[in-house]
Nucleic acid binder design. Sequence first.
DNA 1: CGCAGTTTTGATTCATCTCAATTTGTGTGG
DNA 2: CCACACAAATTGAGATGAATCAAAACTGCG
Lengths: 252, 252
Amino acid sequence: MHANVKQNVVPLITPGFKVACSQCNLRELCLPFGLSDSDMDRLDNLIGCGRKLKRGQHLYRAGAPFEFIYAVKSGFFKTDVLTEDGRDQVTGFQMAGEILGMDGISTEIHTCNAVALEDSEVCLIPFTELEMLSSEIRTLQHHLHKVMSREIVRDHGVMMLLGTMRAEERLAAFLLNLSQRFTARGYSPTEFHLRMTREEIGSYLGLKLETVSRAFSRFQDDGLISVQQKHIRIMDILRIKALLAPPDGRIG
Amino acid sequence: MHANVKQNVVPLITPGFKVACSQCNLRELCLPFGLSDSDMDRLDNLIGCGRKLKRGQHLYRAGAPFEFIYAVKSGFFKTDVLTEDGRDQVTGFQMAGEILGMDGISTEIHTCNAVALEDSEVCLIPFTELEMLSSEIRTLQHHLHKVMSREIVRDHGVMMLLGTMRAEERLAAFLLNLSQRFTARGYSPTEFHLRMTREEIGSYLGLKLETVSRAFSRFQDDGLISVQQKHIRIMDILRIKALLAPPDGRIG
DNA sequence: CGCAGTTTTGATTCATCTCAATTTGTGTGG
DNA sequence: CCACACAAATTGAGATGAATCAAAACTGCG
């Protein structure tokens, strides 16, 4: 807790660094997707600068005034909501090219926390100016809408997971999702490091950390994966996928 | 099933009726919120017509091409997603003034189903034209973003519910949410008819219908509510709220 | 090298699911 | 308008998956 308070001061004295979409290898994955060169220059002017975060540092907190949305340039984040009565729910994990902060648009106040799970960099996108620019650039406007809609659809997937799946199905879905997102970023589909703890995975999946750990162990015993702490190697992706289709194959 | 197929044809031969935001008593709750009279006229021109649906009829289905978003003018809807393997998750219930269909923006294909739970009316809002108009009307643009963001925040709340709450807490949260939304629409906060079945409530809350029924019965035995089938009367809203704060009051 | 945080594993408890039987409500057609 | 059939809801008994409580092992950081 104290550590976080201290860390929260750091960005104010850390000069932002200059970023440019046009130079970024994530541009096909991120907000500038589909923009012409000249339009991308205009977006570059708007975005201005980036921000570096150390592991454990908050990008923003629930209750903070909303000003920016953020594009993950490198690193790994989690977002979580907490209630007055102490419940804590991880709502997502974000990696390079993904957009953070859209929870703040509706009330101008952020409703969740965003925390770097490893040293990370983000691009700061001032939202009011983004709205102005997007009213001039149709492609940008439409893409912003797509990004927000994609988040809604993703959330529906999480609801499905939390509402209908058993523990091992949830973990299987989680691993497949990570694998797919790593693949899209040019990393190995079968071998990766988890940046989050068992407890954070558990919170995201609606499970206790012990249940997550047991499910990992069981997957390993069954030859589906190899786990060593945070290092995961997927051994049999087909059988992991099969876990998501219930044995009875009920339809309708 | 056959009934649905038949119903699906009806709207094609049912002439749409004319709607006008400027005449609508939901305008302070719905998309035109905050617009000037002249801007609202422009929105009216865009929206054009509405559509009536009978109970059980689909407004749209997963897989259907995306063209409109819909404002609920009257009635009550549910949205649900289903997977190939037969899982079914209700993702939300929508009432007057709420917007449906934003799941379709990201891929131009709807990813969930929207079904009328009673005879209902919606306004059809052609999305491409809405984007064009919103690039000219700042207020409209910003409000559209707020509506989408609000949906994201709402989804986070559902994740919290599904991920951290026990059965009676989920039902309490559900009842309080309905009560609040009815209140905002000028209906009684304490007495209402549920438009959905126990099974649909259960799907939304990640519970089996029997568990929902038992929780209702328990609430009634404890004097929190009075239930008779779909008719609900809230007797002690404070104690229902208290159910959401765990007894130990753990913090942080 | 030691300590704190994380992870694994085991034994037990408990909430919810499952299966099953009734009851109640609703819509349809005679 | 009533009777019937079907859908929805209630309630009970028992099974089960995940939570809880507890202890030990591992990892990485200072």
